[in-house]
Design a protein around this nucleic acid. Structure first.
Lengths: 227, 227
DNA sequence: CGTGACCTTGACATTTCTCAATAATGGTGG
DNA sequence: CCACCATTATTGAGAAATGTCAAGGTCACG
């Protein structure tokens, strides 16, 4: 699908740790995440970095959504494929293809909504609630249900990435994850992978669970229709 | 300007405390803030509310940017005029009027960037830095420079609104503001108004000052061209 | 004037951060 | 294939920031 985009876009194949420039010769740029994962982060002078968004396949990023004059970066956290093209080109293609236009609109709206939820998460939830929120989000977006109540997903993000996403520090995050393990909610799994033993119990820890489900569904539906 | 929009939109005149529904019969809706101010808030079950955005004249809100299935509200904090219309109608008008299209794109991009900065503010700044950030933001967006180094602006938002925006509680916010007053940075001003005695000192307290300036400029330029 | 909403301030409780030590992991070169 | 090293993760103890609760003050409006 999106054959026209595939022709126009330059396909970036990134390795873990590689960063991407936000614009091609100062023009507004669009990015489509095809596989892998990236973090979008922002570092205000004199403060620890803040991860603004975790980008997964299907997400769309537009360079003007990133604050100018801020120390922002887009970094792959594992082998990742990103399609990059001028925003004006993408817009023109969307003009000819309502399916593409709809995909872009829906994806951006879902991210905006997720952003609002992220603000509420950072601003109002306790550490444990924040961690439950991001794990639930990842489980919904990239999880594959295994046996009853159990979900496993790749966890390309480091502790530091997740801590910076949640506005916690890595030590605190580590303590919270240990706590979830001893409660039997998380399994002691291999590196770069997370296994949720008890999805319901995890969801019960975060007040954002219903909203996350709603956003994921609304984003997935049109994407499926488009396929 | 935007005469076509003026014809199509329903003009809502809101009093302080009035809330607005996000959609007209479940269709996606656009809101243009013409005067006054509103807060967009989100309350996750069992947690204090979080103000996601402070909306001022020139801002644009789209209903799909608000998480579904969340307890979200849009509330006027003073006498406010909002133009409301179906998003599909607004999009059609933008199709005929590049100036309008540009205004919408720029305004939404500025808000998205501001949102990213808001995340960094809540996630990584201390209480005092957060307060300095929001005051700087408001001074840039709605302030009128008085004498040298001094800026005054209306402050329609209550302590609670600002505290909920910053993820602090009102007591802590009050203490911080008292501190800024005793440092001579803020004046002891009348209710619903804030006077910044020393803009440079205030800006020096927030690591986000350069980014806020950049966003405000980039948002203002096209709006002026459009006028 | 009286009432209710909003704001300020103090004392104390709680959470999270900081710093430091230790353990686990994964990649690299012999 | 194994040993080594750099990075990442875990955990404890104490420090600092923010939250909670309660009392009192101020302001706008009827």
């Amino acid at each position: 699908m999106f054959a026209a985009v595939a022709i126009q876009a330059s396909k970036l194949r990134l390795r873990r740790g590689q960063t991407v420039d936000f614009s091609i010769d100062d023009r507004e740029t669009g990015f489509l995440i095809r596989s892998g994962a990236l973090v979008l982060d922002l570092t205000l002078p004199g403060t620890p970095r803040q991860v603004v968004d975790l980008l997964l396949p299907g997400d769309v990023l537009r360079s003007s959504f990133v604050p100018a004059d801020a120390n922002a970066r887009l970094t792959a956290v594992c082998a990742t494929e990103v399609w990059r093209l001028r925003w004006s080109v993408l817009k023109a293609l969307a003009g000819d293809d309502p399916t593409l236009a709809d995909f872009l609109e829906t994806s951006i709206a879902a991210q905006m909504a997720r952003q609002a939820l992220h603000i509420a998460t950072i601003g109002r939830l306790t550490g444990e609630q924040r961690v439950a929120t991001v794990l639930t989000d990842l489980a919904l977006r990239s999880g594959i249900p295994a046996t009853a109540g159990e979900v496993g997903f790749n966890m390309p993000f480091s502790r530091r990435d997740i801590a910076d996403y949640l506005g916690l520090n890595p030590d605190t995050l580590s303590r919270i994850i240990s706590g979830l393990r001893s409660q039997g909610i998380l399994a002691r799994s291999e590196r770069r992978r997370t296994v949720v033993r008890d999805v319901r119990a995890l969801a019960a820890l975060t007040p954002a669970a219903p909203s996350l489900t709603a956003i994921t569904d609304s984003n997935r539906r049109p994407a499926v229709e488009a396929a």
